[in-house]
Structure formats: structure tokens, C-alpha cells
């Protein structure tokens, strides 16, 4: 670990995460804790979205996708996490005088995991996975924003992940190491980032050609089937709930124009990648329904407040929408 003189550092010798006795002694007990998917293959998780959470930013949003498997209170081992992401838009504001002329809006995206966002603690300095996510998010958003309307200006999109999806079930990664390192969780995180950043951009009132939304689909090996090889396509996978994910795909999808601004596919897709991409767009349409409803409600609340002469603050309304897949 490199020392960072501007922050408080851990003891020099380094610390290790606690090891729970029953995880190394009692594998049957461990197997009991394994989460499993209780949703249908085309059913998405519930989405909680809220806009205008940061008054000093021009636009902001908070997204939460709670974990579908219920938390057990009988153990201290953290259960599968949910996704919690905030996005904040600073700008558009004029570029500094020293910057070269730019005919369109300069978009800067920053994605950062909080140190407590994942099962193993993360550092404060951005690592390669975070920078990678930032680039992917930028591609997804760049295709949507009408940048020509803001020459010589820049906008900052700052996304903070307070809690991220896991790459696999923690019990697997400890014993076999099969699911770890494959980065399935990152796809879910990216889809969440795209959706929440898009909601924040709309909240900031930056002109866009359409709403972009993220969606994930995956191909998993079905454990119950008699044929070991049978594959199932699912929408909005939670990687911890599956023993083996074969392939996964995330898209940034513009529903009304039927366009894709960002696509990231991983794994052994097989002969027909189109089915997987289509699944991901269906998932994106599901989250679009929620985003639209939340934004509409925020707008209504704003105008309602103005007509009553009570413009002291936006009425913030939490909203929770139950969804079924768009398929």
C-alpha cells in the first residue's frame, strides 16, 4: 500500500479482513447461506430512484436496487449487497480561459467506489476498474447529450457508488475462486451508473436526444436441469445468485430511437449474441419506465409548488415502483 500523506492511513503492517470460523470449518452451513434467484427469468429487481438530492448541484439522483434475497439475522457475515449509487452533475459551466476552444460541451465523468462499497475494502485513490467504468459511462452519455448547444463549456458527472454488486457469491470466491475476478458485478454497476447519471442529467436540464438507460442480461447454466449444459437467458442478473454465469452484456439503450450508445459484452456468448443484447435492451426499458415516472413526478411537484407560491424547496417525493420485465 502506498502511503497517502493527505489522508489518514492504516497501520503500516497492514490489516486483514476478519475470517469467520464457520466459513472454513463447516461447508454445509456455508451452503445454507447461498442465495438463489427467486424471480422469474424476465423479472427485474425493484428500483428506487430519487432526483434532486443535492441542492448545490445542478442535477443529481440516487438509485437503489435492494437485494432480492432476504437478509438473515442469524449471522454476521454480510449477505449479498444491493446497489446504491449517487450521481451529481456540476455544470454546464464555462471552461477556464486557459483551456483551448471547444465547439461542444466537454463531458467529464468520474466513477468512484466508496471504501465500504465492496466486501474487501477499497482505497481512496481511483483504481483501474473505476477509471474503466468512467470511460464506459462517458461513451454511454456522450451519444445522448446535444453538446453543440454549449460551446466553450464543461460539465462534470460525478458518480459515487456507496454499495456495489458482487462478482459472485462470496462463498465461491473463497473456496474455488471461479467467480472471482470475472467482473460480472461491474456490468450491473455500469448499468446502474448509466441509469442514475441519465436521470441526473435530465434533472439538470441538459438537452438530450433521449433518455439513456442501462440494462443487463446474462446467460447462466441452469443447475436444476438434467442436462448440465442447458443455458438460460435471464434479465437483470444478480451474480451472487448463480453458480455459473457464462456470458453477460450491458447496454446503454435509447428506447424511443432504438439506438445503443454503449455495449459491453463478456464471456462465452455462443453463436447468437443478438438474443443477449435484446435481453439487455428489455432490461433497460424496464428501468426506463421507473426513471420516466420519477422524473414526471418531480416535475409535477415542482410546478405544483410554484403555483402555490411555495417555491422554497422542491417537494421531494420518494417513489417505489414495482416492475415486471419489459419482455
Amino acid at each position: 500500500m502506498n502511503t497517502d500523506r493527505r489522508r489518514n492511513n492504516a497501520p503500516n503492517g497492514g490489516t486483514s479482513a476478519p475470517v469467520f470460523a464457520r466459513t472454513i470449518r463447516d461447508s454445509e452451513y456455508l451452503e445454507k447461506l447461498r442465495p438463489s434467484r427467486s424471480r422469474g427469468p424476465n423479472e427485474l429487481r425493484r428500483i428506487f430512484l430519487q432526483t434532486s438530492i443535492i441542492p448545490s448541484a445542478s442535477g443529481s439522483a440516487y438509485l437503489e436496487i435492494p437485494s432480492s434475497s432476504s437478509a438473515t439475522s442469524s449471522t454476521l457475515i454480510p449477505p449479498t449487497s444491493c446497489l446504491k449509487i449517487t450521481a451529481s452533475i456540476q455544470g454546464p459551466k464555462p471552461l477556464p480561459r486557459s483551456a483551448p476552444f471547444s465547439p461542444s460541451l466537454l463531458l467529464t465523468t468520474t466513477v468512484k467506489f466508496a471504501p465500504f462499497a465492496t466486501r474487501s475494502r477499497r482505497g481512496y485513490i481511483r483504481d483501474s476498474a473505476e477509471r474503466d467504468l468512467g470511460v464506459h459511462l462517458e461513451t454511454a452519455l456522450r451519444g445522448v447529450i446535444i453538446g453543440e448547444r454549449w460551446p466553450k463549456s464543461g460539465v462534470e458527472v460525478v458518480v459515487t457508488i456507496l454499495e456495489g454488486d458482487e462478482d459472485g457469491w462470496w462463498g465461491d470466491s473463497a473456496s474455488e475462486g471461479s467467480a472471482a475476478g470475472s467482473g460480472w458485478g461491474l456490468l450491473n454497476v455500469l448499468a446502474g451508473c448509466i441509469t442514475v447519471a441519465s436521470a441526473a442529467i435530465t434533472d439538470a436540464g441538459i438537452d438530450c436526444v433521449d433518455m439513456v438507460c442501462g440494462g443487463v442480461a446474462a446467460i447462466t447454466r441452469n443447475p436444476e436441469s438434467r442436462h448440465e449444459k442447458e443455458l438460460v437467458r435471464i434479465l437483470d442478473p444478480c451474480p451472487a445468485e448463480h453458480k455459473e454465469v457464462v456470458a453477460a452484456c450491458v447496454v446503454g439503450y435509447l428506447a424511443s430511437r432504438d439506438e445503443i450508445t454503449e455495449i459491453w459484452m463478456k464471456g462465452d456468448v455462443g453463436a447468437d449474441p443478438d438474443a443477449l443484447i435484446e435481453g439487455a435492451t428489455h432490461a433497460a426499458m424496464g428501468s426506463l419506465a421507473v426513471v420516466k415516472e420519477v422524473l414526471l413526478e418531480a416535475l409535477e411537484a415542482k410546478f405544483h409548488g410554484q403555483t402555490e407560491g411555495n417555491d422554497a424547496g422542491l417537494k421531494r417525493k420518494a417513489h417505489d415502483v414495482e416492475m415486471t420485465g419489459g419482455a
Binding site: 493527505r6 489522508r7 489518514n8 492511513n9 492504516a10 497501520p11 443535492i54 448545490s56 448541484a57 443529481s60 449517487t86 450521481a87 451529481s88 452533475i89 456540476q90 467529464t108 468520474t110 468512484k112 466508496a114 471504501p115 481512496y124 462534470e156 460525478v158 459515487t160
Partner: peptide
């Protein structure tokens, strides 16, 4: 022994004056 390690992160877009990418 530095048993307590407190840290603060302000550059999460929480305010216009703290933009990420810079040192604290």
C-alpha cells in the same frame, strides 16, 4: 498504533468547490 483510521471524502460532487480528480 493507529487503531482508528478516520477519513473524509468531499469530492463526490457534493459541492461545486470540490471536484474529483484533485488531491484532498
Amino acid at each position: 498504533l493507529r487503531l482508528l483510521v478516520p477519513n473524509v471524502e468531499l469530492s463526490t460532487g457534493s459541492t461545486p468547490s470540490h471536484i474529483p480528480g484533485n488531491a484532498p
